[in-house]
Design a protein around this nucleic acid. Structure first.
Length: 938
RNA sequence: GCCUCGGUGGCGGAAUUGGUAGACGCGCUGGAUUCAAAAUCCAGUUCUUUUGGGAGUGUGGGUUCGAUUCCCACCCGAGGUACCA
């Protein structure tokens, strides 16, 4: 029988769909297991071969867990809000809801084609109002809570208000925005309603503040950092500037410590946890207040090295700080303004990356050293970032290389405060075994002692204190976009007012134009019907705004990470209209047992979702404070882009093997589907593909045009997307599934290359030939021999271990070895082939089901048990070779001999006596590694 | 720049705690079968060589009887870097 994968796969996919084979109930006698994939963004390019990598792995594991007797929840959905759909809408005027729906249909067809065992009855979409109703609800919860530092959890804002009424905010230990003023209970009671609201906003877990965005005036929109290249927009090359806007933020910093310490609770990759730790960036040190000479103000700095306080010789501020304007002296004004302007044009990343150019300007002002009273000049420099710490650093050139280089460049004195250490050439950054010098009361102390002493003194003098700083910043939550969840807030007296749960969902209004308004308001500003009637509690036309009962609604929308921060709970109970997840479903499923997704989400989705989880846990809405017990990162699949080479200013293109004869050339990307496996370009199809090649001349060698190749991220814009559809057509889904697993370790990024796919396809054909030959069913009921049983049980053992360790590539190898061996032994025994089929079914489910049925089984393979290893078949027969010798004085001893060391030595010496190697010498040294190798030194 | 990961034949990749580097697959070479091709099967395949051997896991050092594995420095590639998803 030929391997007719097409009809086999169609047959079983239809069977699974018809019987709802993978539908799972919210209760069962079996233990539960929740396997989650990161849901895809449905882009217009369709699913490419990179998407299924993680889905195949999780599907294999889900099928394996079902075999092992678990009630497996394995859902899928779509992260369907996002920028590309909106950009497409701006270009074509099509509503994002329409294109998103079309894209989802295409994705679904492609996903089904690969035979995934998703429970599609639970599908969800973040852009559906039934779903985002609850995203909006969580936003409101965050708005109605603050973070109490005493008991370390979120509490209702009403608690805070009653505290204020009793004792003001002097004794309230809560996380608030910097610069929040202090007040007594009496003062609070006398504050106006507006003032009270303003103060509360400083405590709410989601709040309004002024933050910077990338503004592109020519495109009339805000850009993501990734859309900005060298200070201009990627599309069109228009200038981009920084603009301050009043935006919603999430007080994620309140959870910094818990987000850090709870990493120890979860089985996530160490590298990813390390990234999150560094992202939080906890550092212990002190804040120090410096009085500005001639001003009433102080500058606060954070330092991890307060022990070097007496080495300070200047201070550097971030150029964009407001205080810079205040303190700049008249004669420095021009220089400072120019510098600030220059800084505005550089991105933060540029400023951080550039360590070679040292720039800065003196402001003309001084601060006073808190202990010596010395005048310390205040500079500004773009290596200091406004949103890290306080945006000000005390510069200690002897102890910090950056400060050292700055001081050298601008001839600022460098004071040495380290005993016996030369700082002629570079700063001394070490703090171990270092004694402080020239530092008043710190002189002769070592660094740790100096650290605690100075903090004590700072606190006594009330000009500083020991403190912990985090690099983490609060998360900006506003987007000036159309295609996102509306923020359920209206504005009354310039203050935000929340809607109620009953008012939700607040549905996205229709607009005629998806760009921001002419006045620069977000796209929702184009909606005619976007005002809130507080009486009828409905959305009404903007004309009705009257300052009494109808008010404008919020124009910003939520970021993409909002929906993805909690979606995994909705799968448990996707149709519940009373609550975000029903109690019964929540108690049964609890959390995700295994989460699969890319490490590129390490400090975004995988971080924000932990934050929301902890918040909802504080409110007792969720049973656990970490949602995913185990996480596996799958590596990205890289595309193999194709290039042709154009002579600048001409329409002449050169084949890759002619480049030696060309002086200069521009590489131009062409679609990889126009190139065959030998890198030869189909020029006729290229001309059809893009108009620009109509008049092109192609210089080729021997009648063949070869392209250049480069490996990069698979992306529609790089024309290197490989679609799984064709491979499914040519080789079948089972081959694609096994091949993607065979490509390499699941966590590693790897280039897509189909040249090896025939090997996997041949394996499946070979596997089938164990059952059929020459159109005949050849499975027999012969008792298998020892050798065959050994092969089977070795394979069961290897495959089971490999699946548990997610080592799917070596697992596929084990299958290949097994089938090769059984083939060469001419083994067609039912007793061997039946368990082998079960073993293979997570990888090649369609073929396995087909064979399973032909073997006479009436049930589907899905809920069958998994074969167990019988170790007794694996015992080695060892008598034949006790000692082997490879000529390098190295011996392998088979361990099942179980000899002790002296016995091993005796065996070897006896063996050597008969060889030419010993020649009367006695060994000087023996190295005997149990189970391994023995080296003898003469 | 910073954080995280990776670098092994012509290619994708194997290699328990440091112990015979190159499993398995692709490709290539030769053979069988065939009128021929496809398919299939068998054998070989790190490089080099004077056929004794020598070299070899990005580069340069180090630790060790022994290093792909551990340590130090560097080079190259990928992902993230706070509004792509």
């Amino acid at each position: 029988m030929e391997y007719d994968f097409e009809s086999i796969e169609k047959k079983w996919q239809a069977y699974w769909a018809k019987n709802q084979t993978f539908k799972v109930e919210n209760d069962s006698d079996k233990p539960k297991y929740y396997i989650l994939d990161m849901f895809p963004y449905p882009s217009g390019a369709g699913l490419h071969v990179g998407h299924p990598l993680g889905y195949i792995a999780s599907d294999i594991f889900a099928r394996y867990k079902r075999h092992k007797g678990y009630n497996v929840l394995h859902p899928q959905g779509y992260d369907s809000f996002g920028l590309p759909a909106e950009q497409y809408a701006i270009e074509t005027g099509q509503h994002p809801a329409k294109t998103t729906k079309e894209n989802i249909s295409r994705y679904r067809v492609q996903l089904d084609q690969m035979g995934f065992s998703f429970d599609w009855s639970r599908e969800l979409r973040t852009s559906s109002p039934d779903f985002y109703k609850w995203t909006q609800w969580i936003f409101l919860l965050l708005f109605e809570h603050y973070y109490c530092k005493t008991i370390n959890k979120a509490l209702p804002i009403t608690n805070l208000i009653s505290n204020f009424e009793k004792e003001g905010n002097y004794f309230v230990n809560a996380v608030c925005s910097p610069g929040t003023e202090n007040f007594t209970a009496d003062q609070w009671l006398k504050f106006s309603k507006v003032k009270k609201e303003e103060i509360l906003l400083n405590y709410r877990l989601t709040y309004l503040s002024n933050t910077e965005v990338n503004w592109c005036a020519d495109l009339g929109t805000v850009l993501a950092n990734s859309e900005v290249i060298n200070g201009v927009s990627e599309r069109g090359g228009y200038p981009v500037t920084k603009k301050k806007m009043r935006q919603w933020s999430m007080r994620i910093c309140a959870y910094a410590e818990r987000l850090l310490s709870d990493l120890d609770k979860i089985d996530w990759p160490d590298s990813l946890k390390e990234m999150q730790r560094n992202w939080i960036g906890k550092s212990i040190g002190a804040k120090v207040l410096f009085q500005i000479e001639g001003f009433d103000q102080k500058i606060e700095v954070f330092t991890t090295r307060p022990d070097t306080l007496f080495g300070v010789t200047f201070m550097t501020l971030a150029p964009e700080l407001d205080i810079v304007k205040t303190i700049t002296h008249e004669e420095q004004k021009n220089e400072v303004n120019n510098y600030v302007e220059q800084t505005q044009q550089r991105s933060q990343r540029e400023r951080m990356s550039d360590i070679k150019s040292i720039t800065g300007v003196f402001t003309g002002s001084y601060v006073l050293h808190p202990f010596t009273g010395e005048r310390i000049p205040i500079w500004i420099g773009d290596y200091v970032l406004a949103d890290y710490g306080t945006g000000a650093v005390m510069a200690v050139p002897c102890g910090d290389q950056r400060d050292y280089d700055f001081a050298k460049k601008f001839n600022i004195p460098i004071k040495n405060i380290f005993k016996g250490i030369s700082i002629d050439k570079e700063a001394y950054v070490n703090k171990e075994n270092t004694i402080i010098d020239n530092s008043d009361f710190l002189t002769n102390l070592n660094c740790p002692d100096a650290m605690s002493r100075i903090i004590e003194e700072l606190e006594n003098k009330e000009c500083g204190e020991g403190t912990i700083n985090y690099r983490l910043r609060d998360a900006i939550f506003s987007r000036q976009r159309y295609w996102g969840e509306p923020i359920p807030i209206y504005h009354k007296d310039k203050l935000p007012q929340p809607l109620n749960l009953d008012d939700l969902p607040l549905k996205l209004p229709d607009v005629e134009n998806y760009l921001p308004t002419r006045e620069g308001f977000p796209p929702l500003g184009n909606a005619h019907k976007w005002a809130w009637d507080t009486e009828s509690r409905t959305v009404v036309e903007n004309e009705k705004i009257d300052n009494k009962k109808v008010f404008p609604l919020e124009l910003n929308t939520m970021p993409v990470w909002a929906g993805s921060s909690w979606y995994f709970y909705r799968y448990m109970d996707p149709y519940n209209s009373d609550t975000f997840v029903g109690e019964k479903a929540m108690n049964y499923w609890q959390d995700v047992d295994l989460y699969l997704g890319g490490s590129e989400h390490a400090t975004s989705h995988l971080f924000y979702s932990r934050f929301w989880q902890k918040f909802l846990f504080d409110l007792k809405l969720l049973p656990v404070d970490e949602y995913a017990k185990k996480l596996i990162n799958q590596g990205m699949i890289l595309g193999n882009s194709a290039f042709i080479f154009r002579k600048p200013g001409t329409q002449e293109y050169f084949s890759k093997d002619l480049l030696d004869s060309v002086e200069d050339y521009d590489p131009i990307r062409v679609d990889v589907s126009l190139v065959n496996l030998s890198d030869e370009l189909d020029i006729d199809r290229l001309r059809m593909w893009q108009k620009q090649f109509d008049t092109a001349k192609f210089k080729m060698k021997n009648g063949v045009f070869k392209v250049g190749r480069e490996v990069e991220k698979m992306s529609k814009s790089k024309f290197n997307v490989v679609n799984p559809d064709r491979i499914c057509e040519k080789y079948g889904a089972d081959t694609l599934r096994m091949y993607e697993m065979f490509l390499g370790p699941i966590e590693q990024a790897k280039p897509w290359n189909t040249s090896g796919i025939t090997g996997v396809h041949n394996f499946l054909k070979k596997y089938l030939r164990l059952f059929y030959a020459e159109n005949r069913w050849i499975v027999n009921d012969k008792e298998p021999n020892k050798k065959e049983l050994k092969i089977l049980h070795e394979t069961i053992k290897r495959v089971s271990i490999d699946i548990e360790n997610f080592s799917f590539n070596t697992c596929v190898s084990s299958f290949m070895i097994c089938v090769n061996e059984l083939t060469s032994l001419n083994c067609h025994s039912r007793e061997i082939l039946t368990p082998l089929t079960l073993l293979l079914s997570p990888f090649a489910p369609h073929l396995a089901e087909e064979v399973w049925e032909k073997l006479g089984n009436k049930t589907t393979i899905v809920y069958n048990s998994f074969p167990e290893v019988n170790e007794s078949y694996l015992v080695e027969d060892t008598k034949n070779y006790p000692v082997s010798f490879n000529g390098k004085m190295r011996f392998t001893i088979n361990l099942s001999l179980n000899l002790d060391q002296d016995a091993i030595k005796k065996v070897i010496l006896e063996d050597l006596r008969t060889t030419e190697y010993l020649q009367g010498k006695t060994p000087k040294k023996w190295i005997i590694v149990p189970n391994k190798i023995i080296n003898i030194v003469f």
